[in-house]
Every structure is written in structure tokens, then in C-alpha cells.
Design a protein around this nucleic acid. Structure first.
Lengths: 204, 204
DNA sequence: GTTAGCATGTAAGGAGTTACATGATTTT
DNA sequence: AAAATCATGTAACTCCTTACATGCTAAC
């Protein structure tokens, strides 16, 4: 990608892996899917695309008119769609970057994008990433719990409630990861709804 | 604050409202409490403090040595703690900015900080902010549900699972807000654990 | 023919991080 | 006396957004 930890670049290559797409469409998919629930701006996307072209990971195909248009006068100085396609080198880079299962891959943004393309990783790598993420989230949980216990008297009820809710969210995330790890270990190649470990026992 | 929507400035003023604090301590509290669970860097904090000083919202009190130290030779070119204290104007600014209950106050960062200082707002303003936030989150939920339904076939199981989990998190947030609004309407001045609406029914 | 949505781009700037640099105090 | 932690600060940089600007295509 542009650099180590360029989540956007990784996501774009991943989406282009299936089929070539133009910028506008890429934005829609990035916004709707990859844990990137907030709309990504064009001011971010287009420069990133140009960067990937410069690196040779993707190539442009310019189209002057709509797909349905009869005559395809390839380009006439006018502006049309620019469809991007993954190059062979882009594919390689994508696989390498995706399989990276070190500390950076358990951080929020990185993890989400990797998870979205999990189908393209082997089971062992998937497990390594999931377990790393779980450890990371457990650490966060411990910190929150400790700071929550410490601040019990210092803060008013609203601040405490905010912290309690944050704690709960992280606990939920850890349980989710537990389910996924379980599923993955069972050799279950896909998580169809993630059946919560039989009876959905108590909170911790 | 520095500008409309300066969450950090608002949070600092809020923490200083109780008692004067120095930068290092402020950072600890900001990291541990205000929904800002990730550690804030000094490279952000100190410039922000200087900015607030420039505006006259806070003032510096320099201390050359530790509190326990005998002689307090106020300052001798050496470096010591700098304790910041809210000015009268700072208090005003804080109250005004905190009570701002328009669209920006229902965005992620803004909402969390305002919520943390809810005790200092009147019940009507609290309710307005909570309801705005709830509407905002419901919108987000609708978008996610629509995009989830639309993409059912386009995506593999992992991507779908990621979206499902995101959806679930937002649903959880909406239920949390419902509880808080309920509580607030009942005149309940504080949320002691937020009793989930009696039986904690099914997920949706 | 005009509005709405598709499509691409640039410039400026906001809000933060990392890496660096310094020094004081406390603990081992 | 060394190591850990407390404490403050700067410079460079990253990643993203906003506001602007352009033009094409479809629908009313």
C-alpha cells in the first residue's frame, strides 16, 4: 500500500480483487461495508487511487461514455468513468498485506478490513488474527475495568454510566470474537450468524 | 473553545471545572474516562492547553517543585508542573458550549463528552441531546439495515458477519439510549446501572 | 430545459499521531 | 547511581474532511 498500515489502500485492492470498479462505486462499497460505516469522502479516495496507480498496483481504463452507449469513441478529452483494475503486482501486494498478522492487524481499522476479506486467507492466518485481536480487546477490557474500579467515587453517575456502557461494548466484542474463534477452530469455514456458544451464559 | 466542535477543549474545561489540574493528570483522566478510551498524546494536549490560555478560558499557575517540598521558590528558570485553572470566562464558555444541543452534539465525540458532564445540565437539555442522539443512531441503523439487506448476495459470509456485528452494536446503542431517555423522563436524576426494560427481551 | 444523480477532481485545513528532546522526582 | 515514572514541550507528518469546481447522463 502507500505505506505500512494504509487501510484504505488495502480495502480498495480487496474490492478490486473481484472485479474492476470505478471510483464512485468504490466509495459506495467502502462506505456500506468494511466497518467503515461513515461515508468516505472523494477528497480521500481519488488521491488514494492515483497513489495506487503510481505504485503499479492498479491500472486505469478510461471510458468516455456509459456502458450502454453505441459508439465507443474511446476518449476525446471529455471526462468519463475511470475503471480501475488490479494488476498482477497489485494482487501480490494485496495478498502479502492481507496476510500480515502482526500487532498492527489487531488494531481497529486494520482488523475490520482484514476480517472483511477473511475468505481469501487460510484458516491458520485467520485464527492468528482473531486470537491477536481477542488478546488486544482483553487488554483494553482490563484497563477499562481497572480504571472503572479506581474511579468509582471520583465521578458522578453520568460519567460512570458512560464508562460502564463502554465497558459493556468491549465485553460484547470479546464475546463475539470468542464465538468466531470457536467456530474457526471447529473447522467451520464460515460463520453463519455465529451461534452464541449454546446458552449465551453470563456476561464474563 | 478553539472553534465550534472542539471536543478536546470542551473536555478540558469540564475536567478543570471541579479542580485545577496539570497537563499530565489531565491526559490520564481524558484517556480513562470521556469515551476517549485511547490515550491522547501530549503533542495534542499541550498545544490545546496553550490555545485555551490564549483565549483566556484558563490560566497557568507554575510550580517549581512537588507539593511536599519545603521551600517553594516559586520558579527559577527550572521546569515544574503547570497547574491550569478555569477562569470566570472559561466557566461561561464551558456552560454555553456544553448546553449546545444542536446537530453537532449528536455526533460521536461531541455526544460522549456532553454526556460525561450531563450532571451540569438541566433535565430539558439532557433530554434534547439524548433524543437527538437517538434519532441520529436510528438513522444510522436504518442505513445499515438497508445496505445489509441489499448486499445479502453480493458478499461472502465474513463480510456479511462483519456487517451483522456492526448492526448489532448500533442496535445495542439505541437500546441504551432508550433506557436513558426513559429514565430521564421519569425524572430519574441519575442512571444507576440502567435497569434494562424489565425482562431484556429478544435482540431486536 | 431543468433538476437530480452520476462522476471526477483540487486546495485548504482540522485533529490528531509519532518521534524527538529535555528535565525533575521517586523508587530500587 | 540507575531505572522508572512524572512532566513538559516541538516539528514533521498522516489521514481525513470540507468546500469548491467541473461536466455527463437520465428523468421529469
Amino acid at each position: 500500500m502507500a505505506k505500512r498500515g494504509d487501510v484504505l489502500g488495502l480495502a480498495v485492492l480487496g474490492l478490486l480483487h473481484d472485479s474492476p470498479l470505478h471510483g464512485y462505486e468504490l466509495r459506495k462499497r467502502l462506505s456500506a461495508t468494511l466497518g467503515m460505516f461513515r461515508a468516505l469522502s472523494y477528497g480521500s479516495l481519488y488521491p488514494a487511487l492515483r497513489d495506487l496507480v503510481t505504485r503499479g498496483w492498479i491500472v486505469e481504463q478510461r471510458h468516455a461514455v456509459r456502458e450502454g452507449a453505441s459508439a465507443p469513441p474511446p476518449l476525446a478529452g471529455k471526462r468519463g468513468r475511470i475503471v480501475y483494475e488490479l494488476t498482477a503486482e497489485g494482487k501480490e501486494q494485496f495478498q502479502d498485506a492481507l496476510a500480515e498478522s502482526g500487532p498492527s492487524s489487531w488494531e481497529d481499522g486494520d482488523f475490520d478490513v482484514r476480517f472483511a476479506f477473511f475468505a481469501q486467507l487460510d484458516a491458520a492466518t485467520r485464527l492468528r488474527i482473531l486470537e491477536g485481536r481477542r488478546t488486544r480487546m482483553s487488554e483494553r477490557l482490563d484497563n477499562l475495568r481497572r480504571s472503572f474500579a479506581r474511579s468509582r467515587e471520583r465521578w458522578d453517575d453520568y460519567t460512570l454510566e458512560l464508562q460502564r456502557h463502554g465497558l459493556e461494548s468491549v465485553e460484547h466484542e470479546v464475546r463475539w470474537l470468542d464465538g468466531l474463534i470457536d467456530n474457526e477452530r471447529r473447522g467451520g469455514p464460515a460463520p453463519p450468524g455465529v451461534p452464541p456458544p449454546p446458552g449465551t451464559p453470563g456476561t464474563r
